[in-house]
Simulated assay, not measured.
Amino acid sequence: MRPHLDEVADDMIQEIQTRVREYDRPGEGPYSSTLRLAVERVLHYFVERVADPKEPDSSVIDFFRTIGRGEAGEGRSLDAVQTAMRVGGMVAWRRMAEGAAALEVPARTLGAVGEALMLFQDELAAAAGEGYAQAKAAVAGEMQRRRKRLLDLLFADPPAAPEAIADLAAAAHWPIPRTVAAVALGQETRQPTAFPPDILSDLGRRTPALIIPDPDGPGRAKLVDRALSGSLAVVGPTVPLNEAARSIEWARKTLGLAERGVIGATTGVIRSVEHMSTLILFQDEELITSLARLRLAPLSHLRSSQQDRLAETLLAWLQSGRNANEVAMRLHVHPQTVRYRLRQLEELFGDQLLDPDLRFDLEIVLRARALLGDRPGEQIIPSTGEAVGDTAEVVSFRR
Rank of each mutant, 00 (worst) to 15 (best):
Val91Cys: 04
Arg65Met: 13
Ala97Ser: 12
Gly88Met: 08
Ile67Tyr: 09
Phe64Asn: 11
Lys136Ile: 08
Arg86Glu: 14
Ala102Met: 08
Gly141Ser: 09
Met143Lys: 02
Ile61Lys: 01
Leu117Val: 11
Leu124His: 02
Gln82Cys: 03
Ala127Ser: 09
Ala137Ile: 04
Arg94Val: 09
Gly131His: 01
Leu110Asp: 00
Trp93Ala: 15
Leu78Phe: 12
Leu78Asp: 05
Arg69Lys: 15
Gly131Thr: 00
Met85Glu: 09
Gly141Ala: 03
Ala135Phe: 01
Leu110Asn: 11
Lys136Ala: 13
Glu123Asp: 13
Thr83Leu: 15
Glu98Gln: 14
Ala100Leu: 01
Ile61Met: 07
Phe64Ser: 08
Gln121Trp: 08
Glu71Phe: 07
Asp79Gln: 14
Asp62Trp: 06
Ala92Lys: 01
Ala133Met: 02
Gln82Val: 09
Ala133Ile: 00
Arg76Ser: 14
Arg95Phe: 05
Arg108His: 06
Leu117Gln: 10
Phe120Gln: 12
Asp122Arg: 11
Val105Leu: 15
Gly99Thr: 03
Ala102Ser: 12
Val139Trp: 10
Gln144Ser: 14
Gln144Trp: 04
Gln82Ala: 00
Thr109Glu: 14
Val113Gln: 12
Ser77His: 09
Val91Thr: 07
Asp79Leu: 08
Gly99Ile: 02
Glu123Ala: 15
Leu103His: 03
Leu117Met: 13
Gly111His: 02
Val60Ala: 07
Gly141Trp: 12
Phe120Glu: 04
Arg69Gln: 15
Ala80Glu: 01
Gly99Trp: 07
Asp79Ile: 05
Ala107Cys: 05
Arg65Gln: 03
Arg146Phe: 09
Met96Arg: 06
Pro106Tyr: 00
Ala140Gln: 10
Gln134Gly: 05
Arg95Trp: 10
Gln121Gly: 10
Gly111Ile: 00
Met90Thr: 12
Gly70Tyr: 03
Met118Phe: 12
Asp122Asn: 06
Lys136Ser: 04
Gln144Phe: 04
Leu119Glu: 13
Leu117Asp: 03
